[in-house]
Structures are given as structure tokens and as C-alpha cells.
Amino acid sequence: MNMLDVTHLSISFGGLKAVDDFHINVKKGQLYGLIGPNGAGKTTIFNLLTGVYKPNAGSIVLNGNNITGKRSIDINKAGVARTFQNIRLFKDLSVLDNVKVGLHNNNPYSTIEGILRLPRYHKVERKMDERAIELLKVFDLDKYCHYNASNLPYGQQRKLEIARALATGPKLLLLDEPAAGMNPNETAELMDTIRFVRDNFDMTILLIEHDMKLVSGICEELTVLNFGQVLCQGETAAVLNDPEVIKAYLGE
């Protein structure tokens, strides 16, 4: 069964069709790549998948459930989480508290319980602390749990953003240029991290990336986007060797 089925997805801004008849099918547990030149519409698609934008046409089905046009918070609760090309951590909060932000979806307590620090508040906070530390250990960040997020090196901030996304308990994880700004050693480590997340969290991952070494190293299938339309889809090696892809994207 597919985790994600997108058909005939389209959106226009001021008469300009940013995404036109986009389609993609991502299997459960798959590591799938979405690539294309700058301005091809990749981030717009992520914004459609997460409810930031509402499509003019088409459907988005997550694990058999239609989430087309739903609010971002409802799509997140349905099982979609994302990271961003430009890291969006709460940099004045601790590493631990950044992860706990993601946990609040599944560990609610009332406003009154929080204000009055009632027993349920303390019970839920302890539970979230424990779960947050577990997630941070996955990324070897638990030793920095009381640091401000802004004090982490760039590569570790990237990992923290993934940990926070995982805290929401997603079925589908969208990674928007996770290797952006990383050196080769950090990128290699990131590849191992993404594989680990997929294999150990029963996760389906769709990623946007310009680093072809990362794409060819971890993605099983690719969709290439050009001017808002699907140019090519299929197994990674075949797509990257397609003459139209080379012409449009790799510039060769």
C-alpha cells in the first residue's frame, strides 16, 4: 500500500501556474526524492502537502485518508511532519524544549492544569521529558539537552529539527534540503541518520535535495520537477541518467 498518493495537483498564484497536474506515489517505508532546478515548484508542493497552501485542483491521500485542503495542524495530526530549507528552530529555547514542542500534540493538558501546575501537568511534563531524551539520544544530542538550540553547530541543528519533527509521531516525514549548508562529512553522517530514521521509526520519507551524492546514495525513486510539471519519474539511477533530466537539471 502507498503512504502517499497525489493526483492532478495544481495551484496558481496571480495567473501563474506554479504546480501543474503534479502526481506522485510513495510506498510505505520508501525513501523518495523530489528534485529539480531552483524555482521548479518543489517547496510549493511541500506547502501543499502540509496545508500551507490549498490546491486549486487535485487530491492528496495519506495512508488511504484524503487530506486535501485540510488545515496544517490537522494534516500534522494525521501524520505528516516536515523540516525546512532554512532551519526553523526555537533558538532561544533549550534543545530539550524544542523537541517537547513537537510532543505537545500527543500529550495535552488543559490551560488551567498548566497555569496551576496541577498533578496532571507534572505527570505529562515528566513523560514528555523522557520521550524527548529518547529522541535526542537517537541523534546523539541528549548531552546538549540544556543548551540553547542556537548554540548547537549547524549540522546538529539540522538533526534537532528532524528530532522535533519525529516528536509529532508522523507516518510521512518531509525533509526540505536537509543537506543544505553541510560539509561532505556532515552530509555523509546525515545520510546515515536518514536511513536510521527510516528503518527504526517505520518511517516513509520524501525529501527535496540538490546534493546529488545524497540523492543517489539514499533515494530509491525520484520525481523530477521542471516548471511546475513532472519531467521524469522512476528508479533513481534511471532518472539521473535520463537525457531530459540531464539537460534540464544537471545542466550537461
Rank of each mutant, 00 (worst) to 15 (best):
C232A: 08
L250Q: 11
Q156W: 13
H8G: 11
L175W: 01
N47H: 12
M1L: 05
A188C: 01
E244C: 02
I162G: 08
L62H: 04
N86P: 10
G69M: 02
F227A: 05
K91N: 14
D5Y: 00
M212G: 12
G14H: 07
E220V: 00
G102D: 04
S216Y: 04
Q157K: 10
E209A: 11
L166P: 03
G39A: 12
T111Q: 15
L49S: 14
F196T: 07
D21H: 04
V197L: 03
D199N: 08
D129F: 05
K70Y: 11
Y144G: 15
L141N: 13
P184L: 05
Q30F: 01
T68R: 03
L118T: 13
P153H: 00
L173V: 01
H146Q: 15
F46G: 11
A180L: 05
N105C: 12
P184A: 06
E113A: 13
L31F: 03
K171F: 06
L152F: 14
T204A: 01
H104Q: 11
T7V: 01
D20I: 02
A57R: 06
H146M: 10
G41R: 07
R71L: 14
R195L: 05
E221Q: 04
N183S: 07
K54V: 15
V245H: 11
H210E: 14
K143E: 15
M128S: 09
Y121K: 09
V99N: 08
E244Q: 06
Y32S: 02
H104W: 03
L231T: 03
H210N: 13
L160C: 06
K127D: 12
S72A: 15
R195A: 04
D140R: 13
E235A: 10
L49H: 09
A238P: 09
V61P: 09
L214Q: 05
S94N: 07
F201R: 01
G169I: 00
I208K: 03
E220T: 00
V230A: 02
N105Q: 14
L231I: 00
S12R: 14
G79E: 07
F90P: 06
L103Y: 05
G29Y: 01
S216D: 10
K213S: 06
V245G: 09
N226Y: 08
R117L: 05
V101M: 07
G41M: 10
G234K: 02
E252F: 11
T187G: 08
D199E: 14
S59W: 00
I60C: 06
E221G: 00
S12L: 06
T68M: 04
L116H: 11
L166W: 06
I60S: 04
F201Q: 03
